[in-house]
Each structure stands twice: as C-alpha cells, then as structure tokens.
Amino acid sequence: MKNRIDLTVEARETGKHNSRTLRSNRQVPAVIYGAVAPINVTVGEKEIVKFNTRAYENALFNLKSGDKNANGIVVLVKQVDVHPLTRRPVHVDFYALDLKKAVRVWVEVKLEGKPIGLSEGGLLNVVNRQVEIEVLPTEIPEFIAADISNLALGDALHASDLKLSGSGKIMSSADLTIAVVSAQEEEVAATPAPAAAAPAAAAPAAAKAPAAKK
C-alpha cells in the first residue's frame, strides 16, 4: 500500500485580510475539495515548500486537524500557487480522495538500458517523459520503468508498450511516442503534458476546483 504522509492543517476564516495575516505568519491558505464538500484550511508554509517538489509528486497526505471535518482526510496536492516575485506559496488546492475510486495522474517514465541503435549511429530522443494513468490512489507508482535496450535505429517506444501492475491503466494515447532512436539529423517534436494531475471520470467532483475563498 502506498505510504501516507501526515500533514497538519487547521480551519481558517475566509477573506483577504485573514489571508494576508496568515501569510505574514508563515501560514498558507488552502482549500480541500473532491470527495468532500469544500473546506477552507491553513497549512504551514515550511511544510508546503518541503513537499512541493518532484520527490513528493503524487504523494498521499493524511490530514491531521483539530477541525473534525478535515481530520483524517487523505488528499493529493493538486496545485500550489506561488508569488511571482518571492516564489513563496500563497495558496494550496488539496484534492480529497475516495480510496476505493480511481484517479488520473501523470507519472514519470523511467528509461532503462542502452538502445542497440546507438551503436548503429542513432541518437536517442526522449519525446515525452510522463504519461497519464488511471489507478487507485493506494497504487499510484513512483514511476513506470521501461527497458529500451532493444530499440534499434528507427525503433520507438510508445505508451502502448508500457506495463502497469495492479489496477493501473495507461490513459495516454496508445501511439504517444515516449522515446525514439533516430538518425542524428532527425528531430521529433515533443507533446507537452499538463503539470497537474487530472481526476478520473470516477471522481467528477475534482474536474474543476471551486473558486477559492482568499
């Protein structure tokens, strides 16, 4: 089962004045939504800075709070808004999970091995580094490993070649190119991938975040 990280949040009052006061005290306004009715909370700036990194992408957080409505909710960090100049976090969106329903998230593809096509004068082009998957929250993988050692000159790895265990399904287009071994003068255009996780159809409540109350 995917490990969870305890994260302390507390109830907050809405309004611009209250939000400014919280930020001056190194607290970040946040909203919880998804499998629950929206809840306005605050979370420590230090914790958000720590967890808003690639190392904690798709991590599950178990909320601890004196507010009984928020206590015990398991969430993903869906979005962290930062100040354009100071780069300090100014608002956080938490997506509350139903652990029995699948969600859609973007996961890194980790390429392993050296393609045989390199010895044939080819060049490895990594076109897309992430794919979208649908999976139970407790089975979200840290990454998807893909062996590319058998790729010859002109061969490509596609999303359809990737393997997932458990309940996971690849939701990206089957013909999405992950990597290709091409002649060095050739170039392959990358398809940009969204930065934030998108909820599965099984969890329509998260399709759009509610307007946050500052």
Rank of each mutant, 00 (worst) to 15 (best):
M1D: 09
K2D: 10
K2H: 15
R4G: 03
I5W: 08
D6H: 05
E10F: 10
K16V: 13
H17W: 03
R20N: 15
S24V: 09
N25S: 09
V28G: 11
V28Y: 11
V28A: 11
Y33D: 00
A35T: 05
A35W: 03
V36S: 11
I39V: 15
I39D: 06
V41D: 00
E45M: 12
V49P: 03
K50R: 14
F51L: 06
Y56N: 14
N58P: 06
F61A: 01
K64H: 13
N69F: 07
I73Q: 12
V74T: 15
V74K: 10
L76I: 06
L76K: 03
V77A: 12
V77F: 07
Q79A: 10
D81E: 12
D81N: 13
V82F: 10
L85W: 11
L85N: 11
R87Y: 15
R87V: 07
P89F: 07
P89R: 05
P89D: 02
P89K: 03
H91A: 08
D93P: 02
D93H: 06
F94G: 04
F94A: 01
F94Q: 00
Y95Q: 10
A96M: 03
A96Q: 04
D98E: 08
L99C: 05
V105Y: 07
V107A: 05
E108L: 12
K110T: 08
L111Y: 01
G113S: 12
G117H: 04
G117T: 07
S119C: 02
S119Y: 13
E120C: 01
G122H: 07
G122F: 04
L123R: 14
L124D: 01
L124P: 00
N125T: 09
V127P: 04
R129Y: 06
I133Y: 04
P137H: 10
T138H: 11
E139Y: 10
E139A: 11
P141T: 08
A146S: 08
A146C: 09
D147A: 11
I148H: 03
I148A: 08
N150C: 01
N150F: 12
L151R: 01
L151P: 00
L151W: 00
L153F: 04
D155L: 02
A156C: 09
L157W: 07
S160N: 04
K163F: 09
K163R: 11
G168F: 05
G168I: 06
K169W: 03
K169A: 10
K169T: 09
M171H: 01
M171I: 10
S172Y: 06
A174W: 00
A174K: 14
D175M: 03
D175N: 14
L176D: 06
T177F: 02
A179K: 02
A179T: 05
A179L: 04
V180Y: 05
A183L: 14
Q184R: 15
Q184W: 02
E187R: 10
V188R: 08
A190W: 10
T191C: 05
T191P: 01
P192D: 06
P192K: 07
P194F: 11
A196D: 15
A200E: 01
A202L: 12
A203P: 00
P204Q: 10
P204E: 10
A206C: 01
A211M: 08
K213I: 04
K213C: 01
